[in-house]
Amino acid sequence: MIKTFFDWLKQPMGMIAVGIAFLVLFSVAAFGLYQTQQAPEQPIQFPHKTHVAFGIQCLYCHPGASKGPSAGIPTQEKCWACHNQIQKTQTSALLAPLKDAVIGNTPIQWVPVAIVPDFVQFNHRAHIAAGRNCEECHGDLTQMTIYENPQVMNMGWCLNCHVEAAGEDQEKLIKLSDCGTCHY
């Protein structure tokens, strides 16, 4: 039984079958990889570019960035402060989830996109204080609807910037390339 199967695999039809199997496996793997790089589904199709175009500062909605580790995602109350004065909020279908959230007093379940693993301790405040701007890591939000990471946020990417920031300063380099600065 097994022997005849392997003999069949050596026939032209069998070769084609092996080829198709490989192609299927490859495309499934490629699709899986592609999926990991996609922005997740959000409860509201939040248009960052519209809000930035109105001149709203990043720190107005994400005030934690200048104060502590987490930048924070605004609650529906913050959205409502502006949106209840806007006529479009009442009519737009895209904004219906926001209206429901405010009326029902249920939090909007935003999905964080720019995240680091649990074993990384990231602090926004230190980076803002060091003179980094939001768009240096988070990309040009004047062009984005739902937020997407402009690059893979991995340790090599962090360290490149840390080493560059240290420059000639040995003491700073030791601090910025120390494992314990981010991992504990």
Binding site: I174, C179, G180, T181, H183, Y184
Partner: peptide, 15 residues
Amino acid sequence: TVHSMAEELNLQVYN
């Protein structure tokens, strides 16, 4: 497990 040169502590890097 490496030595932190900045804090002079013994680190355990979990990842």
